[in-house]
């Protein structure tokens, strides 16, 4: 199964390398105080979210899954390999985000370290959450047909919030109760945020396995 993870990394090495250069660029921009750390970490997670979807596209182009099932792995392992790849990439993006925070605090504003780290954890949670939703969709619909859902999942919450704001159903003031929560508690709590989508990944994985079991190649 690790062979499949390595396969994904080797197939996408060029893309990963390009994204790493992007990351470096954003990091430099952040250190120069041209971008905020929250912007950089959000971009980083967004880029990483595209990787598993690209992996599905590459597999579809090569008709890889039909071949993968001739290997002594089984269907479940094929799914596990893809989830591991998505997880490794998302966690690596989170780690890069945290390192960026440390670098920014060393070379820049030291007071915002915890706040920046909280942003990274929230972005990491969102990255995992998107993976939870998109991986079963890619198995069910294929990467091309799943792509519109990808954008839907990303933009629907923003559209809903804006819509609710326009209709007067929601105002930023309604979140004022959050200011009563001590900052230290929020920061501490944020480190547990990723646990929720991580738990959801198990459910997502089970759904993907079921979809894969029912497929014919």
């Amino acid at each position: 199964m690790m062979g499949l993870v390595i396969k994904d990394m080797l197939v996408m090495r060029k893309t990963i390398r390009t994204y790493a250069l992007f990351l470096l660029f954003y990091l430099v921009m952040t250190l120069l105080d041209l971008f905020t750390i929250s912007f950089t970490t959000a971009i980083l997670q967004l880029i990483v979210m595209l990787l598993p979807m690209s992996a599905f596209s590459f597999d579809e182009m090569a008709k890889w899954n039909g071949y993968a099932l001739t290997l002594p792995l089984g269907r479940r392992a094929v799914v596990t390999g893809r989830y591991l790849f998505a997880l490794i990439m998302t966690l690596a993006a989170g780690l890069c985000g945290l390192l960026s925070c440390v670098l920014v605090s060393i070379f820049g504003d030291q007071d915002t370290l915890l706040e920046n780290m909280m942003t990274v954890m929230v972005c990491l949670s969102l990255g995992l959450f998107y993976a939870d939703i998109l991986l079963p969709l890619c198995y069910k619909l294929g990467p091309e047909r799943a792509r519109p859902y990808f954008y839907l999942v990303i933009f629907a919450p923003i559209v809903l919030l804006l819509g609710a704001y326009q209709l007067g159903l929601f105002s930023p003031g309604s979140l004022s109760f959050l200011s009563s929560v001590p900052d230290s508690s929020v920061v501490r709590l944020s480190f547990f945020f990723p646990l929720l989508p991580l738990a959801g990944m198990w459910l997502s994985y089970r759904v993907s396995c079921r979809v894969m079991e029912g497929k014919e190649f």
Binding site: L10, V11, M12, D59, K63, Y67, T70
Partner: peptide
């Protein structure tokens, strides 16, 4: 060995 080569072009 099936009728096509299933290895990705980038490998």
């Amino acid at each position: 060995v099936l009728d096509e080569c299933f290895f990705h072009d980038t490998l």
